[in-house]
Design a protein around this nucleic acid. Structure first.
Ligand SMILES: [Zn+2]
Ligand SMILES: [Zn+2]
Ligand SMILES: [Zn+2]
Ligand SMILES: [Zn+2]
Lengths: 155, 155
DNA sequence: CAGAGAACGAGACCGAGTCTCACTCTTGTC
DNA sequence: GACAAGAGTGAGACTCGGTCTCGTTCTCTG
């Protein structure tokens, strides 16, 4: 039982995120709960608009989630490093779960042709970025790499 | 005379940009000319709004440059690789001159503390990104790397 | 259960960027 | 030079992510 739950990264991340927020002294509200559930369920980056669309229509008579709550919660999650904020330059911010118990750190290829966002991870790239920071004398807390080109489907 | 002109990268880029556009069959209009002059004069990235502010108040009875012309021209310059479009995630696009006669391809560090944008270039990074694309089987046309951290002044 | 204040939702608001359309200017042709 | 043809232009309406406000609702503690 417990083992299965812990093996489930989605449940795991949601639980972790809730724990972090409660420990930081936050109450639990409906909007937050639903947003965390939604994010935990998804495995690729979601834009704020997509989140809004998914949560606005509250199913089964649930009270719909307001836009302000969505942005507030995303900001809160981001402040606690529970979420990665991804900017690909099309004017919409995307968010995906992050933290100890979620997927690994990764980057993206943005397809020029179909607009799809393809995640990838590469240890060699990470190593060379780390070396780069040292070489330049920057103390970096984060980095973002975005490739543009044709995704496998569009070649 | 000519030597001094050619040594002046700003003049150089402006001339190059104009040549590219004319060769591509474009007419020369006042807005384009003024925008190219402005970009050539600047040496760091400029946001569209900053450009608009600089060109709206047409000095010496010049007709003011309209917003549409600014965005159109930036798009055109970008399509001809005469300008680099830089997105640091604050919701404003920044542009800087690019091409054979301007600065080299480079990337940026965004300071978490003072918000400054620090350009850097690094051959080793470029090499490892090239290798990365091959390894992943992507055909990439462009890439963007942004580091976040503390700039030299803020350490 | 009651009070304090955190969290919430509706909707007004903001602002970077897009679109439209009537007008102006550049350019090639005679 | 005069003259189309059509590229280029500018005012301003518009779009739409995202922010702010404010009165209401809920969560937690005692
Ligand atoms: Zn594609
Ligand atoms: Zn990385
Ligand atoms: Zn700084
Ligand atoms: Zn590069």
């Amino acid at each position: 039982m417990l083992a299965t739950m812990l093996a489930d990264t989605a449940t795991d991340w949601a639980a972790y995120a809730r724990a972090v927020l409660v420990r930081a002294g936050h109450h639990r509200g409906a909007a937050r709960e639903r947003l965390i559930d939604l994010l935990a369920r998804q495995n690729c980056a979601l834009s704020a608009i997509e989140i809004e669309d998914a949560l606005r229509r509250g199913r089964r008579g649930q009270r719909p989630v307001g836009r302000a709550s969505i942005y507030r919660t995303l900001e809160l999650l981001h402040a606690h490093d529970l979420v990665i904020r991804l900017d690909v330059g099309d004017g919409v911010a995307r968010y995906e779960p992050a933290g100890p118990t979620s997927e690994h750190h990764h980057h993206h290829l943005l397809c020029d042709h179909c607009g799809r966002l393809v995640p990838f991870e590469d240890a060699a790239l990470e190593r060379s970025i780390e070396k780069l920071s040292d070489r330049l004398g920057f103390r970096t807390t984060d980095h973002e790499v975005t490739l543009r080109g044709d995704c496998p489907d569009c070649r």
